[in-house]
């Protein structure tokens, strides 16, 4: 039987939605027993959230001030210790999970399947390769412990249940290395929804032509309650910060509505949005590849379309 340990990702004392998606992915392995490990300086609130995810039967907490800012070098040896006896160890395919899980896999001498997008059995998974231009089905030798990162855009979040799983404290004996020190994190804090988890995303490309012009997208996004994204071309041109980049080399997202303004639709961008429920493309060029994947396309000048759309939404609020 499969026994799966999932590492929780959390910020500011709250469980990240990516963890609930990992749980949903794990629950697709039939008969799996699912546990969550929480590493934090004070894990209580996160553990309480995790314990209410449907399908989770146990939450293991590791409290340590050194986990206040999660660092792979510190979590990995402790997670590897807790992972003894589990058939699978899962983490989200976010920068947190991508950084941590291979370090855990190496300590366990286990293979890792990165970015799993579908579960075929306890030993068989599908994952994208070549920036999503091909999908590979991989199979691990039965009896081999497997580490994996879960492509969060491919799974819905697990439901929350009314009953809570047991929460247990653990004290792994692995000593934490002192060779890696957290200095700072500069988050582009905003009142807008988080790009990774937003239900609606408004995104701009090189056609915005300046950082200042991005303001019209921010206004539209605020009117809609949407997050704001950008193409790699717009980020490289300095019109938008790195953490707004959508695409294979940026964030891979799956909102209900994705609106692309002045984005041509390079393959690496399309890889990042292809799981969006509805894609809307606005572009001056009728030949832009983005129209090939858009549910609704409009050939037009975004500098006219954006304010007009905002006005329509406002007046029909």
């Amino acid at each position: 039987m499969s026994k799966i340990l999932i590492v929780a990702e959390h910020q500011g004392g709250k469980l990240n939605a990516a963890t609930a998606k990992c749980v949903h992915c794990a629950s697709q392995i039939s008969g799996a027993e699912i546990h969550i490990a929480v590493f934090a300086s004070d894990p209580a609130a996160v553990a309480a959230d995790a314990a209410r995810l449907a399908g989770v039967s146990k939450v293991i907490t590791v409290a340590n001030p050194q986990h206040a800012n999660p660092m792979a070098a510190c979590i990995a040896p402790q997670l590897a210790e807790l992972a003894q006896g589990y058939s699978h160890v899962f983490g989200p395919s976010t920068t947190f999970g991508k950084d941590l899980m291979p370090r855990v896999a190496a300590l366990l001498d286990a293979p890792q399947a990165s970015d799993i997008m579908a579960v075929e059995s306890a030993t068989r998974f599908r994952r994208p390769i070549y920036a999503g231009n091909a999908i590979i089905t991989v199979e691990v030798t039965p009896g081999t412990q497997l580490v994996a990162t879960v492509r969060t855009a491919s799974f819905d979040a697990a439901q929350t249940s009314t009953s809570a799983a047991a929460i247990e404290g653990a004290s792994p004996s692995a000593t934490l290395p002192q060779h890696t020190r957290f200095v700072s994190v500069s988050a582009a804090r905003s009142d807008r929804p988080d790009l990774q988890t937003a239900k609606k995303v408004v995104s701009g490309g090189r056609a915005l032509a300046s950082a200042d012009n991005f303001k019209i997208l921010y206004q539209l996004a605020d009117r809609m309650g949407a997050a704001v994204g950008a193409s790699r071309a717009a980020v490289d041109a300095g019109y938008a910060p790195n953490d707004m980049q959508v695409g294979q080399t940026g964030k891979i997202i799956a909102p209900e509505l994705y609106m692309a303004f002045g984005i041509s639709g390079a393959i690496q961008h399309l890889t990042g949005i292809k799981d969006a429920r509805t894609i809307v493309a606005i572009n001056k060029d009728p030949e832009a590849p983005i129209f090939e994947v858009a549910d609704y396309g409009l050939v037009g000048d975004l500098f006219h379309v954006v304010p007009e759309l905002e006005k329509l939404i406002a007046s029909n609020g």
């Binding site: 091909a134 999908i135 991989v138 199979e139 858009a294």
Partner: peptide, 15 residues
């Protein structure tokens, strides 16, 4: 981790 098979990605249809 053996490769079992390779598939092209599923295409979104044009709207």
């Amino acid at each position: 981790l053996k490769a079992v098979k390779f598939d092209p990605p599923s295409q979104r249809s044009k709207g």
